[in-house]
Write a protein that binds this DNA or RNA. Structure first.
Lengths: 245, 245
DNA sequence: CGAGCGATTGATCGCCATCAAAGTGGGTGG
DNA sequence: CCACCCACTTTGATGGCGATCAATCGCTCG
């Protein structure tokens, strides 16, 4: 438990973030080595290929990691939520761009200082590996979705994945997770699932017609029949849950 | 440089493997904590869901990591080559199956002993993170291939990726890497690229007709026009090279 | 109230899957 | 050493899913 008045005391992402392995004084020192920054929706944190001089921990909001092909086709490699970490790479530059889907709040650290700090805090390094392993499992799940699943299966799988993530980030309100919030546009969902927006729209409408979901608004989807939705995913949505120790 | 007669002295994978960060005595101790095993082509090292009690370093041959959907659709998440490491997970069980594509030779360690060893050899942990980060980048590359590329683009990209890997594993002979060896069947390639074998076959024939490649045999493909092949990939084949320090 | 952007719905097209059949090559047994 | 067999690959014909093109809806903001 953090002492009263700790600068990280009110961080919503603290339980999931990389810094969850640090306590009071360590954490204060760590925080002082970095800075907090904000981005408006649509702004870019860094571009693919940019030299990787900083690492980041997302405190609030949603980010998307994107890769572009020269002709403009775009693939979203991942969406990041509070507590997620990004930016550490062994290559010269970043291998994707990072953009704000919603307004975001980010803790930023210089790579050099972060690495130095990690070197003397082995629990940070272990945590780092844990996060990387977790992301790797998620990326492979995504490979399965894109390689072998139909449009309906991808979308059902996506909805349930988001429902699961909302749950383990201990999101604000209802823990029954029947309601999924989609912070991103249909275009973003399409670029994540390898589908066109029209297909996303059509499939969601079809699911609505079958009373699997209810479209409370464009961004809020209520899951009406969890079981049948799970059947549609064709299994394997088990992106393992929270990495919280 | 290892002393003469060292048990790992003749390991072809040594430069790339996890153990590359260990020297003489450390390496001897490490090796003694494990065992060497062999599998014939087609045999399974472990199944998805099996409890993860061991970790492995591939010394010779090719492995495939697969995920199955209940109805039999299969996705190959990755092919592993000499020097690749696998098995370390934070979940209870493995998140994919591992099968031998060719006869393989594997160094096996109990997870518990490996972790204990890593805890007192920080350079192993860093190496581990490096490998995970590298695999993550590769997995995201695969996400791009599957999400946004046409059949021809996927195949061209796959061929060039293999050509690149052969090169940095310092493979036996010719370093100009104009010849790519495909240890896996067309079915495996299809299950990796999210395509059917007929499509693989047709596209390779088309590339042959355009004199981009020559099919020396089913398993050996000679690249005749590297430049045009790179154009076809629609960019972004740059899976960063060898992780050798 | 009107402008503009994102989402939805509709109609048609094209790529790759599917179904089907013929070709190829490696291994075994006679 | 050869003939056969079987599994894998290649090639051909057809069909379906999701992309593309197009029009309308609906919300937000000026």
């Amino acid at each position: 438990m953090l002492e009263a008045g700790h600068p990280c005391g009110d961080c919503a992402a603290r339980c999931r973030a990389i810094c969850s392995v640090l306590e009071n004084d360590e954490l204060k020192t760590f925080r002082k080595s970095g800075a907090t920054m904000r981005l408006a929706a649509g702004e870019t944190l860094f571009y693919e290929g940019d030299p990787a001089r900083s690492v980041y921990s997302l405190a609030r909001g949603t980010l998307r990691l994107t890769k572009m092909l020269p002709d403009g086709r775009r693939q979203i490699a991942d969406f990041l939520f509070p507590g997620d970490f990004l930016g550490l790479t062994l290559e010269e530059g970043h291998s994707f761009s990072a953009e704000a889907v919603t307004p975001v709040e980010i803790c930023r650290f210089s790579s050099a200082r972060f690495e130095a700090f990690a070197a003397i805090h082995p629990q940070l390094e272990r945590r780092l590996y844990a996060l990387a392993a977790h992301e790797l499992a998620a990326a492979r799940q995504q490979v399965l979705r894109l390689g072998r699943k139909s449009a309906a299966e991808r979308i059902a799988s996506f909805l349930l994945m988001l429902a699961g993530r909302e749950q383990d980030s201990g999101s604000t309100t209802k823990s029954n997770a029947r309601e999924v919030f989609l912070p991103m546009s249909r275009t973003d969902i399409g670029d994540y699932l390898g589908l066109r927006i029209e297909t996303i729209s059509r499939e969601l409408s079809a699911m609505k017609a079958q009373k699997l979901i209810r479209l409370a608004s464009t961004q809020r989807i209520e899951i009406l029949d969890l079981e049948r939705l799970e059947d549609i995913t064709a299994g394997e949505t088990n992106v393992p849950g929270c990495v919280c120790a």
